[in-house]
Design a binder for these strands. Structure first.
Lengths: 339, 339
DNA sequence: TTTGGCACTCGCCCTGTTCGAGTGCCAGCG
DNA sequence: CGCTGGCACTCGAACAGGGCGAGTGCCAAA
């Protein structure tokens, strides 16, 4: 059991270490914080905290630094979410307003988050399966070649070319287009494959159209698989701020960031609602074992259509970062709702 | 005037330095290369080369390293373009075949280039203005809200939402769509704004449609401006291979890479045809003053629709890098031509 | 013009030393 | 029983000195 004061000591250690990036000793602690006790007492508390695994010393005769477990306790029980200052809020609005399309929104959000938190920002595009269809367009590129264009209510536009087994007339195309739209517009994307499944049967001229329709169905599916999750990252230059030993860690982190799969898994593991903070080794990926990931879902309505967050050193300003991430997510949600 | 042997000495220095990443001395040179002369002679040659500014020594009693000017001479007169090995060629084909759309092609190309050269890869999307229009689609999202979708022969799909001053009927929309397509399909993108300019006049019902058409024209233009040039980068993890002093240089390079404007300017400055190599301070951007950029145009036909290249340390394997860049560019061109 | 010889330079690396922040322990005090 | 001041101790950081050796420049001879 940790007394109130010991928790206070831990909080002080975290705050000082985040600020100075240097191990913090008992004397410095009592000087900078009004703990009301002497360094000797703090030393005893530190010994306990170390025994419990909340802090550690890099080497004997050095100060203490928080462990992952220590940061965890700090985030869970000792720190709140720091609300942004009004200038910061204004910056968010200025920056995000005036985006012309979804790519633009996502791009601006990444830059904004990176600037605000001075860390690496990751923003996921709205998930296809959680969006609803706004329009489906079929174009004939060549006699036996179609292009399918999908537009969602979140502004995503996806396209795919498909080769047909036989040529396809313009009138049949218009027919298919109309039927397709009447069926799927306004429906959730996840339901589309099923809705389209029996569409071939409704056609009268058997072979050609039947096959083409199945092609379409598989196309829809494959489109979901391959393009379902996209994301954008930015602010990688902030990796150089990771601390004095950044040359060692930057490599694996950059590699992890280049693997979209890794990042998507990372965001996927986060809670569906509310903010998620994963600290150091809590991240499954090895390359990210000395980073923390703060992420949160965002969406136009009540429920999240995608996630965004930042990747930074475990030694980060958690309250401030969480505040920034949450504020940006909320505003992006609004922007999406408006468009 | 530099004798043949002195050039040979410079070539040897460049090759050794690129291989070992360490300053190379006269003795080591004569041992590793069959120059047919003694170290003393080489020393004399080195003194001349240094006087001319082709090589320099980091400090007294150290070997020599090439200067930017030295690399320049090496690239221009001493080195060819090393053709790829057959396994490498095969790798390119395997990697690039099976791309499903343009995004996929560009994404795979970036990863491929980064892997092949072990450097940072930059790939530009086919320029809009140099592509031809394959199809224009107009969709009505809401009574007074249209979406314009553009498809080019290079596979680019761009979209933009536009708010109309007044509602627009479905039949008028179809009319406009048809007229638009009959005018611009098959035309070069750069000509589109002009082709569309007098389109409003051809409409009979004056106000509504006239204004809408002008909206469309400006929309086309703004679309070109904002989206004309896009690019993708990858392999940033290779920045850690920049040498022993990479912690110092990585920062500005990462910052430069994040600024798409900078990169676009960089590629824009490259020659229209043939390969361009910019070495160290030849790059206008300050952050890239200790990197070299190897770039080349690629395209489906004879002329380039965009550029791609790599960014690496000035101390790079120029012949090999140039070979890889050229080979990839050629194959990407083929892929685009097929689709 | 090339070559071997030779003295010289200067950064790298290893070692020894000092310095001081920070610790753990202990005895005394409230 | 918990807190406090005192004290000896530890150990890394920073600095200084010295040997080593790669590499140089110069010179006289071939």
């Amino acid at each position: 059991m940790l007394s109130e004061r010991r928790l206070e000591v831990l909080r002080a250690i975290v705050q000082d270490y985040v600020g100075t990036e240097e191990p913090v000793g008992s004397k410095a602690l009592t000087e900078r914080h009004k703990l009301g006790v002497s360094p000797a007492t703090v030393r005893n508390d530190m010994a306990v905290l170390e025994e419990e695994g909340f802090i550690a010393q890099p080497h004997t005769s050095a100060g203490r630094i928080p462990t992952d477990k220590g940061y965890r306790l700090f985030v869970d029980r000792l720190a709140g979410v720091k609300p942004l200052s009004t200038p910061e809020r204004r910056a968010i609005h200025n920056f995000l307003d005036g985006a012309v399309d979804l790519d633009d929104v996502v791009g601006r959000t990444v830059r904004l988050l990176a600037q605000l938190t001075r860390q690496v920002a990751v923003v996921q595009y709205p998930s296809l399966t959680r969006s609803t269809v706004r329009h489906v367009e079929l174009l004939s590129l060549a006699p036996a070649r179609l292009m399918l264009v999908l537009i969602t209510d979140t502004g995503r536009v996806e396209q795919r070319v498909v080769d047909c087994p036989a040529p396809f007339g313009e009138t049949s195309l218009a027919d298919l287009r109309a039927r397709l739209n009447s069926r799927v517009v306004g429906r959730r994307f996840a339901d589309v494959p099923q809705l389209v499944q029996d569409l071939p049967e409704s056609f009268e001229e058997i072979e050609d159209r039947a096959t083409v329709s199945t092609v379409l169905a598989t196309l829809l599916e494959s489109l979901v698989e391959e393009h379902e999750e996209r994301l954008m990252i930015g602010g990688t230059a902030n990796l150089t701020r990771f601390g004095p030993d950044f040359p060692l860690m930057i490599r694996p982190v950059l590699e992890a960031l280049e693997e979209q799969v890794v990042l998507l898994k990372l965001l996927g593991e986060a809670k569906e609602s509310g903010m998620t903070v994963r600290i150091g080794h809590e991240n499954a990926h090895e390359g990210l074992s000395s980073t923390s990931v703060v992420s949160v879902g965002y969406g136009s309505g009540g429920e999240a259509v995608a996630k965004l967050g930042v990747v930074g050193p475990t030694r980060m300003d958690y309250p401030g970062t969480m505040g920034a991430v949450r504020a940006v997510a909320r505003y992006v949600g609004q922007i999406l709702a408006e468009s």
